[in-house]
Design a protein around this nucleic acid. Sequence first.
DNA 1: TGTCAACCTAGACGAATGCCGAAGCAAGCG
DNA 2: CGCTTGCTTCGGCATTCGTCTAGGTTGACA
Lengths: 126, 126
Amino acid sequence: MPKQATPLPHTVLGDDTPCCPPLAQQRVPAEVATALAPAFKALGDPVRLQLMSMIASAENGEACVCDLTPAFDLSGPTISHHLRTLREAGLVDAERRGTWVYYRARKAVLNQLAALLASGGGTTAP
Amino acid sequence: MPKQATPLPHTVLGDDTPCCPPLAQQRVPAEVATALAPAFKALGDPVRLQLMSMIASAENGEACVCDLTPAFDLSGPTISHHLRTLREAGLVDAERRGTWVYYRARKAVLNQLAALLASGGGTTAP
DNA sequence: TGTCAACCTAGACGAATGCCGAAGCAAGCG
DNA sequence: CGCTTGCTTCGGCATTCGTCTAGGTTGACA
């Protein structure tokens, strides 16, 4: 079986995506919803949410898989699968340096999602 | 790990939940991740994301189901099911007034989620 | 009171998800 | 060269999800 050198161009969410007039100020079009929903879905799992946090809050903005895996009571392949999900959602970026693989958070994308949710306005009280 | 499934006591997310030191500044504990993940999961569907937007951006901050349903090519029960999911995730609130049912967005919760994602810092590494 | 409209609940079914163990690549070291 | 370690991919199950049709339940109105 031939080796594919290009593992994942995915990037549904680019850093230049226009996106994000706040969800509460303007109705989200179907296209935009379809583009953004996978990112929220990827965050919709406790393990992935913790992974995302561990990666984003890491020292250099990147975390080694070897540090992430032992933080859970899950098998290595399962963690790898969750990381792949985050990667395909465009939330993180992976890079292999020597023996280890490092994941880095795409903070621009996180900020886009945050901007979408932030209702410029106030709390529940009208 | 002795993971205890949350039985969905409604309102996992209260308006007074302290929550939300940004995800990128402090590692999210397992409990918090378990509490917040359902909200992101609820937003992880294009239909629900549009519903959320339609409700949050409605005139009085509330939208009638009779206005929401015809906006999609889905059956009534399916829309109802999605609204229920949003409700159980604590993202919206439902109220019946006479014949119609109105849904209102919990903007405080949306703001909490936004604050969690907003990485006080900058964009992706330049 | 009977009837109609709006909305939710119940049950079912195909598709996707989460998990694991086993196997496959990649990099370093004896 | 071959062995060990790190991470991913590959098949497999059990569970959950999204959707539908059919059948309530609530309220308005003649």
